[in-house]
């Protein structure tokens, strides 16, 4: 693609299969499909251990995306959809997963997934997704104690970052890093609306601010908004960030600085928390179905 028409917002889609694992040996093969507003994730687990996964963009038809994500995750493993004992759907499009037996909300799945990725010490989960941001408090078993979801506007979410990446023509994966290259934090832009924030950023660029500085102002606005949400449910450590925006170092390190609390380092890709959580719920449901519980 030519430099001129490059889509800076487009993040890389990927899949991965864990080496040294064979699904033929597994007693329980369960899967979770997380159809988010921007990204769709599928994960397959063998007896509760992550085996293979895929993350891609959500298309116009959720049903198609669900099938595509699942097929991509099990590609090259020899696993067929019939071999999977139980599938749970989650996320915005959870009712549109044609092969899922049950649906569980993404809030419960993110808590459970964060529990799997980060361990049982997690008490506060911040899920920053494509179009909303959720603050979740959970117990040592990964069960949700309280949650708060802000879905009124896309400010403070992944989609807002995509819009901004396009504006300053910086690939979305490098956006966080560019925002950290400024010495002093500038005043944040407006944090009530993506369109206002973008308009203010344009104005700052016109005033001659370097794009790194504008990027810092934009990230800071997002972080302030997220912290507002978090303080509502209360922050208890350990604190973790999940969802696609967890990969943006500009957001995570500012959260750490302003909250004076270091989020745990993920052992797995944090975008998968929802899909992993739903695959774990699938395991629990399958155990119940065959009478193990």
């Amino acid at each position: 693609m030519s430099e001129k028409s490059k889509e800076f917002w487009r993040w890389r889609e990927y899949r991965h299969t864990m080496p040294n694992m064979d699904w033929h040996d597994a007693k329980m093969v369960t899967a979770g499909v997380d159809i988010g507003s921007v990204g769709s994730k599928a994960a397959v687990m063998l007896d509760g251990e992550l085996y293979t996964y895929a993350a891609m963009r959500t298309g116009g038809v959720s049903e198609e995306t669900a099938v595509k994500a699942m097929n991509w995750a099990i590609e090259e493993t020899g696993l067929k959809t019939e071999d999977i004992h139980y599938v749970v759907g989650t996320g915005y499009g959870r009712v549109n997963v044609p092969f899922a037996k049950r649906t569980i909300t993404e809030i419960a799945c993110h808590a459970r997934g964060a529990h799997y990725i980060y361990g049982p010490t997690v008490r506060t989960v911040l899920d920053i997704g494509g179009q909303d941001c959720k603050a979740i408090r959970c117990d040592e078993k990964g069960k949700v104690m309280s949650f708060l979801m802000n879905d009124k506007c896309a400010a403070g979410t992944g989609r807002g970052l995509e819009v901004f990446a396009d504006l300053i023509r910086t690939p979305i994966e490098e956006l966080g890093k560019t925002s950290l290259s400024v010495q002093d934090e500038p005043q944040p832009v407006s944090n009530t609306c993506v369109i206002f924030a973008k308009a203010e950023s344009v104005a700052l660029l016109r005033q001659g601010w370097p794009k790194e500085k504008v990027s810092a102002a934009y990230h800071l606005a997002m972080v302030n908004r997220i912290i507002d949400l978090l303080t509502k449910v209360g922050i208890e450590k350990d604190f973790v960030v999940t969802g696609g925006v967890a990969k943006n170092t500009g957001i995570v390190s500012r959260l750490e600085r302003n909250l004076k609390l270091k989020p745990l380092e993920p052992k797995l890709d944090p975008i998968l928390a929802g899909a992993i959580g739903s695959a774990l719920f699938a395991k629990a449901l399958y155990e119940k179905e065959i009478g193990l519980r």
């Binding site: 708060l148 009530t192 949400l229 509502k232």
Partner: peptide, 16 residues
């Protein structure tokens, strides 16, 4: 579980 439904905007916190 405590479920918060609502939003926060410039004029205040509105949650049930």
């Amino acid at each position: 579980m405590k479920a918060y439904y609502g939003y926060k905007d410039g004029s205040g916190d509105y949650f049930i």
